[in-house]
Every structure is written in C-alpha cells, then in structure tokens.
Write a protein that binds this DNA or RNA. Sequence first.
RNA 1: GGCCCCGUCGUCUAGCGGCCUAGGACUCUGGCUUCUCAAGCCAGCUACGCGGGUUCGAAUCCCGUCGGGGCUACCA
Length: 489
Amino acid sequence: MSTTPGKNVKVRFAPSPTGDLHVGNIRTALFDWAYARHTGGTFLFRIEDTDTTRVTDEYIQAAIETLKWLGLNWDEGPEVGGDNGPYLQSQRLGIYAEWAQKFLDQKDAYHCYCSAEELEAVREAQRAANVAPGYNGHCRDLTTEQITSYKGEGRLPVVRMRMPDGGTTFNDLIRGDVSFDHKFVPDFVLVRGDGSPLYTLAVAVDDVLMKVTHVLRGEDLLSSTPRQIRVYQAMGLAIQDYPVFAHLPFVMGQDNAKLSKRNGEVSIAWYRDKGFLPEAICNYLALLGWSPGDDRENVTMKELTELFTVEKVHSSPARFDMKKLEAINGDKIRALTIDEFLDWSLPFLTKAGVITGTADEIALVKLALPLIQERIIMLSEVPAMLKFLFVKEFAVETDSVAKITDDASKAVLKRSIQELEPLTTWTHESIEVALRSSLIEDMGLKPRIAFGAVRIATTGSTISPPLFESMELLGKQASLARIRAGLEL
RNA sequence: GGCCCCGUCGUCUAGCGGCCUAGGACUCUGGCUUCUCAAGCCAGCUACGCGGGUUCGAAUCCCGUCGGGGCUACCA
C-alpha cells in the first residue's frame, strides 16, 4: 500500500463554484477520487459556497453535472447524501456560528472592529515600511470602553482568530515538511461583519466534522494551511487526528501563466461540446503531475484507481498541452466499440442537423462509423465526415469544383458511369474492381488522380472516408446521380 | 517587498549516487505504406537553469545564485 496511515481514508473534493469547473479543478477532483478509490476509502464531495457574492446555483449544478459526466462518482455529498451532511456550506451556517462563538468564549478568537479603510491604511503603511503586511493586532485586547465606543459608532465586528507566537510545521505528502513562522501568519478573519463564515473557518470545521482524513488540494491553498491547523487546535482536535495534507502542483496554460481562455480552454463544458471523451480527459489530466512510474501512459479509469499513489505525484507545475490531449482522445475513440462510438456520435450528428434520428439513419451511421473511427480526434468532427451520406441537396464543395471540370476528369467520370451502371452487386469490392480495371489499367491513370475525381463527385470533397466503402454506403443510385451531376458542372 | 513552493528535450514525464554517450509519449521533420485524409511502421531533431562544493563517481546529495509560480482579502 501507499501512504495510508490508517484505514478509513476519506478524501474530499470541495470546490467553490464561482464559475464553471475548469481543468485545474478537475485534475484535483480526479486525484481526490483516484486516491479514495485506490485506498478503498470514501470520496466526499462538498460545495464551498460561503462567498455568496460569487457562487451561483447554476455553477453549483454545473459542478455536480461535470463530476457525474466524468464518472467521478462520490460516496458522500450532494444528491447522494451521507451521514455528515448537509454538504453545501450555505446550509451549515449555524454550525460555523456555534464554533465561532466557542472560539470567542475560549479567547482563541476576538471581535475586531477595524474598518476596511483602517485595515487598508495599516497595510499601506506596512508596505511602505517594507515589513510583512498583515493585521497588526489592533483589536486583540480592547477595553470595555473601547468596545462600547466602537459599537456606538455602529461598527459591525468581524471575528478574528488569534495566532499564537511560534510557528506551524506540517508534513505535506507531496512536499515534505513545510514550516511557517506565525510572524507571517497574521490573525485572520473567521466571520464577516454580517455574520457569514469565511472559507478559513468553514473548511476547517467541515473537514473535522466530516471526518476527512486526507486533504489533497491545489497548491494555492498551501499557505492557508497554518490557519486551517490553527482552527483544528481551537476545536480541540488532537494532533494525530489532523487530516493529512497534500498540495497538488498547478496546471498552467501554454505560456506558463494560469490557464485561461487566452491560452487553452479551461471550461470542461467546452471539451464536452468539442467531443472529448471523459476517459480521455481523465487519462490526460492524470498524466499532468503524476505518472505510474514507468513508460505507461494509456490508463483506464479502473487502472488509474489501481495505480494511483500520492508519492508519485509531482511537486512541480505542469503545462496543459492541447495536442497531447487530442492525441489521447484519438486513441480513446479508436478503442471504442462501434456501439459505444455510435452512442457518443449520435448527439453530435443530430445537433448538427445531419440526421434527425430515425432508425434507418442510425443504421447507416453505424455502418459508416468504422470508416471514420481512425480519422477523427474529436467527436465534433463526425458530422462533417458523414454529412455526404445524408444531405438532401448535394453539392460539391466550391473549392473542389474546379478540380473535376477539366477534360481529364470529365473522361474519368464518364468512364466511371459506364463501368458502374451495369454492376449488379454494389459492394466496395465490386466497385473497386470495376473502377480499378477501367480507370487505372485501361486508361493508365494514377490512382490518386482517377479516384480523386470520383471522390469529389460522390462525396463533394477532396477528403473523405475510403472511396469505395463510401460509395457502397451511398448506394448505386445516389452515387451515379452525383457522378452525372458532376459531369454537368 | 515579505513568506512559501517549484526548476530533466518545445510540452508531459522516467530517473532516487555508477545500468545515463539521459529512456518513453505528444509535437515537429524525413521516409515507408497508400484511392484522399487518417491510422500504422521506421528514422531524426532537441533537455539535466547557472556556479560552487561532497564523492573514486552527481541529473540524482549540500550550499549559493538565477528564473518561474503562489500567498500576502470581511476570495477560495
């Protein structure tokens, strides 16, 4: 086994849905899920929606759908429930308020009446004096008179955690021992002036109450860990019961900056629309910051759960590479059975208006799919590839028209009609034999020239699935009609 | 600025002191195959940020340096 201190491993994925889940979030979710499954533990999904100004119901719902689509099923969380719910922090406000009050009673926390402007002024001065910016402890030990005075001014206090002198050291599963001197970890806010909890309070309280044992999350949260640990202390949690931390490296965009629309798409919804398979996305993402340890790259979800260990996770950031994702997606598409490929393709075909979804259409699609399976890297390419089989108003692509209007092409098309007309069996073999013996052998043409003309006439494009198979599926009547029409161009 | 994290081909990575004249994958280039496009196969290009140590021996350990990133909120 891997670094599994005890049994009952519980890993949580706790995004704050302030937008669509992006590649980085998903990589974290994937590792959380894989670790839980690898250890035979529990995968908990929690929504951190304490910032009501940024989180929306739509984003929450989208996050749930995205995880489901990717196949990252959870054991506790929204929709499935569990013994430690509710799993939306907005529904746990009372719990946080109770703990905040407890911290206040224990003197671990205190009310701070400083206004935003005053705090900003302090920070400004600190920056100017070139010292570590942070809360200066102004309200740590207010007198009763001062408090009365502030209240009289109508100030709404925040609840601030008192950071004791000293430091915090914890063992990060990926980075080893990490230490922070409390001189650089100022007293932090737990509860806003309006009484609502902040991430720092909610995340720690929930991880403890929900019995989370392993926190695998983004590297951006690394420096907030001492604050989280401080809350554990205030909650009276024994050191050996603290969750184990592992901070995952970032996933960055092409230009070494954070992933954004400018350098690679971030929204998983975009990849879904583009026709990337969940398995391809997960396989690729698994390789970003982790590797099985050998040259192996193609892993199924099941294999990932078997192979995944935290010690194999990197500590350095990884760049997102669309080309590699595409290559993997192509591999995964080629590995699909025809029925699976059909299921994935149908929505794209109907959405593009290529088919309406009748049984006949679907039957034809199923016959055509094998022809294009190794020719696409994304499902969104399927409609354009198969369109020629279904269009009512067939027309040769404008760019290709000129390529079949010359005399040589006309001769090819004319001869093709002569040879194809009498065929009694219409199969790709019979078509090929007829065309090859006449156009290539008799007329002495180069295959790419001769078949190219027929290809343009029948499929409308210089690029198509294999010609003879395409013509077989198109049917004798339609094929001949198109070649005749090509003669008229 | 301060604190923290990070540093192997263009990119993702293997590598845990000798098996490394650094391996695999993607990309790119050339070739084979070929009815187009793909797929497949073969070949090639290109990397241990830099400088000091330690050691018989360092990509691997230590120090420094440079570079990148994160945090520094009544965001998460």
